[in-house]
Design a protein around this nucleic acid. Sequence first.
DNA 1: GTAAGGATGCGCT
DNA 2: GCGCATCCTTACG
Length: 207
Amino acid sequence: MLLPQSFYNRPTLQIARDILGCFLIRKIGQKKFKFKIVEVEAYNGPNDLASHASRGRTKRNSVMFGEPGIIYVYFTYGMYYMLNIVTGKKEYPAAILIRALEPIYVIVEGAKRPIESRNSMAFGLKINVNGPARLTKALKIDKSFNSRPIYTKKYGLWIESSPTPSLKRSSRFAIVKTTRIGVDYAGKYKDKKWRFYIKGSKFISKK
DNA sequence: GTAAGGATGCGCT
DNA sequence: GCGCATCCTTACG
């Protein structure tokens, strides 16, 4: 089921846990690619020194200060895009960075086909989605998605809830909580355990 | 298998 | 100018 905007209008750290195991769907042309979200990081509030928002509102980060459920895509290292979803109340700058996905299947002309290898071409899309920059490249996500809603199918990118909501999440998988990647400069915020991933997943971005 | 370095452009000081 | 919420290629064993 498509996750509604209200899902994102909650505390960011809670969303980071809840979104694990949910599905990211990308529609390109007639093909629909389905992935499981297996790793995320939270960038939480105006004081988080690892967050773009800690330097105040700028043209670049302004969507972080807006409505929850909006996509925040930014450009870094001269060549990569990062995919984030804005979370929490309006005016409270926070977002979830999607760091890694697990390929599930692709629907071509109504038929489900497995996505076989992380590094092979699957129906015209290079599937290499265990890393925040890799996955945007693979899914053809760029700045044009910035400020669009994720809670509609209109733009070819949306998130659906996991298939067995009746089962408690804790009975399906365990969550590892640890420190974020590449934020050594962030003072006391570098030690915040705001990175979450599904324990035992083979599709985590590092180690 | 692991390690090192280059690529590359935009936002911010 | 500097530095970055990174990845890929090359060079080794």
